[in-house]
Design a protein around this nucleic acid. Sequence first.
RNA 1: GGGGCCGUGGUGUAACGGCGGCAUAUCGGCCUUUUAAGCCGGGAGGUGAGGGUUCGAAUCCCUCCGGCCCCA
Length: 491
Amino acid sequence: MSEETPREDLESVRREKLDKIAALGLDPWGQRFDDHRAIAEVRALPTPEPGSEGPGPRVRVAGRIVLRRGQGKVHFLQLRDWTDQIQIFLGKNQVGEAAWSLAGLLDLGDLIGVDGTLGFTKTGELTVFADGLTFLGKSLLPPPEKWHGLTDVEQRSRQRYVDLFSNPESMRTFLGRTRILAAFRRVLADRGFVEVEGPTMQSIAGGAAARPFVTHHNALDLNLYLRIALELHLKRLLVGGMERVFEIGRVFRNEGISRKHNPEFTMLEAYQAYGDYHVMMDLTEALICGAIDAIGGGYQRPWGESTVDFTPPWPRRTYADLFREYVGVDPSDETAVRARAETLNLTTVGKDRDVIVSELFEELVEDRLQGPVFVIDYPAAICPLTKRKAGDPAIAERFELFVHGMELANAYTELNDPVLQESLFRNQLAGQKAEDSMATMDDDFVRALKHAMPPAGGLGVGIDRLCMLLLNKASIRDVILFPLLRPEGIV
RNA sequence: GGGGCCGUGGUGUAACGGCGGCAUAUCGGCCUUUUAAGCCGGGAGGUGAGGGUUCGAAUCCCUCCGGCCCCA
């Protein structure tokens, strides 16, 4: 041993143990391991009280060693799987010689399977008393510090695999996200919606106002855009007669990265023929309440230092009302609107009134909406895909759902007039930045509308931000498994 | 794009411009039901990278890399 001059680094030590495990005739990378039970399930089994006689139930569990104590003829391990963790008692006399040789080679981070009986130790800790030990995988790298886990936020995003197994809270968060998505699909299926898939590569990136990513298809020698919204293809399906469709998918926007923005993020869009935006408000409440029911924790939900009350129904306030309340002028009073904007040093010259109104709303209203609140009836000029209110063409039948200043959902009574749609595609508002405009002609979409799209309600929900709110995470990176980061340099 | 903050053994942290410590993990020794990390001993980092100031730099300055926050 001494003349081998083993390298002292932590990985080498573990490689040597791996060799020793192989020398025992065991596969250090493990094999199929059938019928183990989730640790959370095992913990819920009826078990004889501490001190009482009689064996507990037989169990088989598998997971990662996250704690290890005792070095004599008894080892205590904490074994963690994706549901929970549990103590394992490993005694020399109980597991036999072969397993005991293996026990001495176990490291924190290794994967093992355990057969045994469930019971309590003298001190009352629920424990699997092992009589069988199966090696399932060698960890060659040491896990992070055992009590604090991995705390560096950058490393948690970069090495999500370590974050997930070392920080149970992170595992809970991401499993919560999948429950939210599953609940969405359930609610939609219950209402007769079908899930479809539109193209992610498009020659016209429409349906929203955002800068797209550009890519190139070689065989067609064609520049393509990654989609920035799901809208226009789902509406084509309404024309085709698919009456209730939805898609949950990634969209891509070539813009900044922040606490609330990742370049690729997940949207739900749902379209219901013969509905309108009021129908979509009801659907929005049903979806989000369904998600809350699925993850548990009730309708009073913590959000940072405060609480959000999601108990439905949520208030519905008109855009104009809120504008008057927070901005202090009437949005239709152009002179007053311009004067108010000047007091905030917003430039107004050459800008359409509705562009200024929209800027004031973003500046003075949105951040103050604690919510949840449906903001309804937007100025038509900033809603080029939305049907105008019957009898008031200046108002669009649109709502956005706000919670703590974050826009969670956006929905319309969909514009289905092809003539108006075509003219709106041509008409960029004065003073509007190109990336805020949806004025990109999509001839095929207009052609589809000419075949008659049924009157319909449409809804978009930003899944990532909803997950942030429902799971109380301050950064979008905490709810996206692999957020975009700069590549690491060569180590 | 502007402003602020941060980067120290695998991990988590400490160090006034003056010998880079502590904890955990790891290695060796002792211990058959332990209690959020049992006892004793050992090894492991030269402080994100590169320059500069200084007798002396983790600490001050500059550039770069990476990250976080706020604003646009």
